[in-house]
């Protein structure tokens, strides 16, 4: 929900997440400062862009709001 609140639309969220996982940094993280101080930013991913995109797509389908509100 943090990504959604920060990036808005589906494409934006997916692009934002992909960019973060490719180039993780505290500066661009959407997580709160306290969280980052405790756990620091995620390490650089080695799983490749293609796999990342797929994972993000799965994540999006799992947490999207669209179609779930009543």
């Amino acid at each position: 929900m943090r990504y959604l609140a920060a990036y808005g639309g589906e494409n934006n969220v997916k692009a934002g997440m992909l960019h973060y996982f490719m180039y993780p940094s505290n500066d661009i993280s959407v997580m709160p400062k306290e969280f980052l101080e405790e756990r620091n930013a995620t390490n650089h991913s080695n799983i490749g862009e293609k796999t990342l995109k797929k994972s993000i797509d799965i994540y999006w389908e799992l947490y999207k709001v669209k179609g779930r509100l009543q």
């Binding site: 929900m1 609140a5 808005g8 639309g9 589906e10 494409n11 934006n12 947490y63 709001v65 669209k66 779930r68 509100l69 009543q70």
Partner: peptide, 29 residues
């Protein structure tokens, strides 16, 4: 937003109806 997905009932009001759209102009609800 903070209660989702545990709560998923969109807030309604008798005085008006409403909708939410994302920045890509896609309808959310």
């Amino acid at each position: 937003h903070f209660l989702f997905p545990e709560q998923n009932t969109y807030p309604r009001d008798d005085r008006f109806v409403s909708a939410i759209y994302d920045l890509e102009y896609q309808k959310i609800f």
